[in-house]
Amino acid sequence: MPRLLWGLLPLATIDVVLFLVPMVIMALFSLRFSEELLGLTGRWTVAHYIKVFTSEGIYLHILVKTIVIALIATAACLLVGYPFAYFIASTSRRWQGVLLTLVIMPFWTSYLLRVYAWTAILGDRGLINEALHFLRITDQPLSFLLFNVFSEIVVFVYLYIPYAVLAIYASLEKMDRSLVLAAMDLGATPVQAFLRVVLPQTLPGVYASIVFVFIPILGEYVTPTLVGGMSGVLITNLLVNQIHALEFGFGAAIAFVIATFVLVLLLGLRRSVDLERLYVG
């Protein structure tokens, strides 16, 4: 037993130092007035939380909007990522290596550059508009392609789809394929075999995708800033403005509301599916 405890010590230390302590500090900040910059002096208060849920409803409104956008982007990642992962898993080992390399290739480039690249693709003088103009399909650039929720979601899908593909692929790899063949032998159509055999077996991968895609999008700042325009403002944009105004207490309260939502989501997912199944054989 002591040996096990020693073994767990590094992990526990990392958890405490990098997760628990910052969360406690953030909670303390959120419950104090910010007369002093560090927010740890002065009176206790829940005013920051009240402000999150009042303030003309803007923070709540933008939080809900952020969640909806994250949900749409996650759903798009799954819809595109699942067939792609399935395709990879069905190819030979050699091709799987090539295709997986292609999936992770975007990570070789800076995240910031990848987001910027989309302004060159979707912009008024971007690749799409120039192509449409060249083909005489349009005579004016389609300005709705960039600086709105649409472009934001497109970029989110592009940025996060590799996580979805990898998680689903890992799940497909572990799937017992003989069950699919058995289902087909017993008269199941391909759709039935997919819905009743493949999908249930790969649900842990789907849930893992949700965790890897949905949660980081909730905290996205760069993408809405660079391609979201005025309609693509998300909760982190408001949060950062508050931090710039030295409103650490209020900023912490907004962050804590998001963190609580994520925590509830994770607990819900954990109750729904055994995520460990994805990685433990």
Binding site: S55, E56, I58, Y59, H61, I62, M230, V233, N237, L238, N241, Q242, H244, A245, L246, E247
Partner: peptide, 15 residues
């Protein structure tokens, strides 16, 4: 003032 300016800015862009 700083707080009020930022609150007002956030309220404007979040609408």
């Amino acid at each position: 003032g700083l707080k009020m300016y930022i609150d007002a800015f956030n309220e404007a862009i979040a609408r």
